[in-house]
Structure formats: C-alpha cells, structure tokens
C-alpha cells in the first residue's frame, strides 16, 4: 500500500491548515494527504485538535490559515452542503442522529442529494416526487442491511443502542456515495463486539474505493486498519507514516507518555 501511495492521485489534500480560538492556536500548520481507498487516521492525546481539524475539513469551522483541496479543486471554508455535493461525508463524535425520525428515515435523509427536487412537486405529491422518495427508501433499506440494522428500520432512532446509532450514522453518511468519509471516533463508547463490527465495516467501505479519514482513540483498531497515520499534539503535527513507523516514533511515545505523566503529576 505504501508503494502505491505515490502513484495514485491525491483525493484530499490539506496544506498548512490552522485555526485559533481567542488567541489559542487549536490547530497549527497541519498538512497531509489522503488517496482513494486509503484509511488515514488522525491520532493524538485529548485536546490535540483532532475534532477541530475535522470540523475545518468538513466546513463546519472556517480555517484561519491554510488550504484544503478535494479532487484537485480548492474547497477551503466551503459550506458542508456544498462539500457533500463534491463527495465528502462525515459522522460525529457526539452522535448527530435525527432523534424524532425512524431509523429508516434517518438513512433516507442521507440520500438528500439524490432525492431532492422541487418543493412544489413534494407538496402536491407528484409522481416524480414519489419516485425519488421511493428510490431513496430502497437505497436506504439496502444500506441498513449492510450495517445490520434492517430489522430496526421502523423503530424510533432515539431508542437504539449506542453501537447501533454509530452504525446508523455511518449508513447515513454512506448514502450520499461519498468519495471520502470522515469518521470521528466511530468506536467511542462501543464494547469489544461493537468495535469489531465497526472495524469490519470501515475496512469494507475502504475496499469499495472510498477514502476514509478517521479519528479514533482505540489504538488497537487504528494500528490494525490504518494505511497511514497522522499524529497531532497541541494542535501540531508531530509525526506521520505507516502504523509501524509511527508507533516507534520517539516524539509520539513522548506525547502519549508525557500526557499521562503530566496527569499523574497533577494528582500528586
């Protein structure tokens, strides 16, 4: 995989990205690239700026510096719904499920870009509107089967278990047929079985050619499935490379152990 990194074209490239919140540099001068079908993980201690980085890439935050390009087109600071049209999709660390909808409706919502049409046609329930909705429903049922939620389709989303909701979010994000999928801690709060399920799901999605950018705390999972790892600490990139290289990097070990040593010191 490492050899092919250089031959394939870059899908997402991030150059010198930075943002400050009230003088505090939350993310500073971070650069990396993601290629199609590749799983790239962003790791780092708590508060390293991983989610902030995600929010900038997915258009939720406006970056203060740097540039982002998707398929060669500059998309820095572009609104999330426009990024979705260009093939970017994401999940959230703190689940963002449409709670009052059924599981099926949540999945159908992911097909918004394919099913949307004139609001007048929707009000009058014209055949075109019904056809689009039906196609989206069929697609959604297939996706739910893929994340093993087919049985729960008609349940209210708010009643699902945490692990199921995580899979539902991935299904919803997959519905727009993205070129790149950003997953923010997909296994957080999941038990070992659920983590393994999500693990398989991510590998499967990547195998279908979708690039994955992952933030995850479960190091075993990260080391197992990543092709490439970017390490952040205090908002800066301190290391980058394949799992084996990164896990041996002295700066990475220091960041993780240092963080633990510091907490220990606070207690004393």
């Amino acid at each position: 995989m490492t050899a092919s990194r250089d031959t394939q074209t870059t899908l997402l490239s991030v150059e010198g990205l930075g943002i400050s919140f009230g003088g505090l540099k939350a993310v500073n001068d971070v650069s990396f690239a993601v290629k199609p079908g590749e799983i790239v993980s962003v790791i780092g201690p708590n508060g390293a700026g991983k989610t902030t980085l995600f929010n900038m890439i997915s258009g939720v935050y406006q970056p203060g510096a740097g540039r982002i390009s998707l398929s060669g087109e500059e998309v820095t600071g572009m609104e999330p719904h426009l990024l979705a049209r260009r093939g970017m999709s994401r999940t959230f660390q703190n689940l963002q499920i449409f709670q009052s909808m059924s599981v099926l409706e949540n999945a159908i919502s992911g097909f918004h870009l394919q099913e949307r049409g004139s609001v007048l046609a929707d009000l009058l329930s014209l055949p075109g509107s019904r056809r689009r909705a039906k196609a989206a429903e069929e697609g959604a049922r297939k996706l739910l089967a893929r994340v093993r939620l087919a049985e729960a389709a008609d349940r209210e989303a708010g009643n699902l278990s945490y692990g199921s909701l995580k899979r539902l979010e991935i299904a919803r994000a997959m519905a727009s047929q993205p070129k790149i999928l950003l997953l923010d801690e997909p296994a957080a709060g999941c038990n070992a079985v659920e983590t393994e399920e999500i693990d398989h799901l991510i590998a499967e999605i990547a195998a279908s050619g979708v690039a994955i950018l992952l933030v995850e705390h479960d190091m075993k999972m990260v080391m197992r499935i990543s092709n490439h790892i970017v390490v952040l600490d205090h908002g800066e990139k301190i290391a980058e490379g394949d799992p084996a290289t990164v896990s041996r990097d002295p700066a990475v070990i220091a960041a993780y152990l240092g963080a633990e040593a510091q907490t220990g010191g606070d207690h004393a």
Binding site: V60, P80, A84, I97, R172
Partner: peptide, 9 residues
C-alpha cells in the same frame, strides 16, 4: 440536527 443535515447536503 442542523450540522448533520448540512453534511448530508
């Protein structure tokens, strides 16, 4: 969820 709606387009 406004943010989730935006990310699905």
């Amino acid at each position: 969820s406004e943010v989730a709606a935006r990310t699905v387009g």
